[in-house]
């Protein structure tokens, strides 16, 4: 190597730290360590119980080899169908209801009071976990698919409405201006300037939400809202691991299938 110029020889270099202030750096490091220690101490691991459960875990994994689709075949089939129509009906109704609320949440289309009411309604429906809503509706409507249907509808409104509102706000404003200039009424403006711009992505979101609703239906069944979740819960309660394994596999396969389907549909729409 060529000889080293005296001005720079021997000058050390270390990578500059990400956080410039040394005090802050140490505080964050110490804070993280203290938190982790505290968190691990309060984990309350019960080794005896784990040792006992180990054998059960092995039986559960053993359930996958081979899974038993037959013994509870009817229940699984019914459960899947129930989940599917619950998800479908909830997606349709949810989207229909979310359109007025979504439009109401678009700042460029409605007066502020309407905007605030719609936005807060959507915020609440999105923030509450589905399973909590399901518990509430099961209390109100009794066990079964109706409670599940209402729960999924409720969740769909929040999800779809928010995305719809954001899409409308982000869409090109120029056509809207043009329509207004042409003297179009509010509904006409919606139909001609907003709908065509928002439609393609909305269909994509709708299909994705259908997929999500199906997956969620597997969960809310556990608290009594019908569908494949209820079947799964029963299988676990009776320690029928091969059947439980079969149900889990069915869920994975349907989710995979719907993922391919939604990718396909989105390509079609585009």
């Amino acid at each position: 190597m060529a000889e080293v110029a005296p001005s720079v020889s021997g000058r050390a270099w270390t990578r500059p730290p990400m956080i410039a202030s040394a005090t802050l750096r140490w505080c964050i490091l110490v804070g993280t360590i203290v938190y982790l220690i505290a968190a691990f101490i309060t984990l309350d691991v019960n080794w005896q119980r784990i040792a006992q459960g180990w054998e059960r875990g092995q039986r559960f994994l053993g359930g996958f080899a081979p899974p038993d689709f037959v013994t509870r075949g009817d229940a699984i089939f019914d459960g899947v169908l129930e989940s599917l129509w619950m998800a479908f009906a909830a997606t349709v109704v949810g989207i229909i209801l979310s359109i007025p609320i979504g439009v109401g949440g678009a700042r460029n289309l409605v007066p502020p009071p309407v905007y605030i009411v719609c936005r807060s309604f959507m915020a609440i429906t999105r923030t509450l976990p589905e399973i909590l809503v399901a518990i509430l509706f099961v209390k109100l409507f009794g066990f079964g698919t109706f409670a599940g249907f209402v729960t999924l509808t409720f969740a769909t409104i929040g999800y779809f409405g928010k995305l719809l509102a954001e899409d409308i706000e982000a869409a090109n404003q120029a056509p809207l201006e043009a329509m207004r200039a042409a003297g179009a009424s509010w509904l006409q403006r919606l139909n001609y300037a907003v709908q065509p711009l928002v439609m393609p992505r909305a269909i994509g979101i709708a299909i994705y939400r259908l997929d999500m609703n199906f997956r969620e239906s597997a969960v809310i069944g556990i608290v009594g809202a019908g569908g494949i979740g209820a079947t799964l819960n029963t299988a676990f309660d009776r320690y029928e691991f091969p059947s439980a394994a079969a149900i889990l596999l069915v869920i994975i396969i349907i989710v995979l299938g719907s993922e391919y389907l939604s990718a396909f549909c989105r390509r079609l729409v585009r």
Binding site: V4, V8, S9, G10, A12
Partner: peptide, 17 residues
Amino acid sequence: TRRFPQKDIDEAFRLLD
């Protein structure tokens, strides 16, 4: 770990100069 030999660091400074 970015712990390069000092002679590499010298060379890097020389080249940057």
